[in-house]
Design a protein around this nucleic acid. Sequence first.
DNA 1: TAGGCCATCTGGTCCT
DNA 2: AGGACCAGATGGCCTA
Length: 204
Amino acid sequence: MEDVLFDLDQDGTTDYAFWGQMDQNIQFQSQLDNFLLDYNTAGQLSPWSNLGSQSMFPDAQLTFTDLDLQSPGADACADGESSSMDDPLEVTKHSARRLSANPPYKVQRHAANIRERKRMLSINSAFEELRCHVPTFPYEKRLSKIDTLRLAIAYIALLREILMSGCDPKSYVDDCMKSGYKNHTNAIWNTSDLTARLSWIKWD
DNA sequence: TAGGCCATCTGGTCCT
DNA sequence: AGGACCAGATGGCCTA
């Protein structure tokens, strides 16, 4: 049986290569195809995905084969095979051998990994969407996930307060700033994260 | 260099 | 049974 190299990069490089066994699991192939389709379209969703990189994962430099070798739960390398691991080609060959050592589990595990990656991609795209809806400084670098969540919570609290007040948003915030937030010291939104950004919000 | 952030893998659990 | 979800572990990158 012949191993097939799936190249997930459009440019033909092997940054995201996945070893599978072509004729073993048709369903797995279609899942992988779906993943590739989503992979290509997802790259257009995020303004941060393409910054300075051809890859959807600008920071990631691991290949699937690398991950297979480096993952904490991965099987230990067979005796006497570690000496050839400096050669990338040998690494992929080695990985392919390990895959074929226990095909059903390996194929299922890789399919699960791909699904998990897809799931994380969808979560990340939701974070990107959320980042577009929270106030940020013009010069600010990308918010972290946790900062995005905290800022969103505070921002929603502020918007709710504005709605409850019935005031014009801009004048409400101006009033808050003039009074030094003295009347809003217990407000959930009165965090340094949000209040510092309020002056940058275009309320019109 | 330490710490923060992130992507990924993995195994367990829950759900359909 | 298979997929979704979750949390822990790990390693890479970046910045102060």
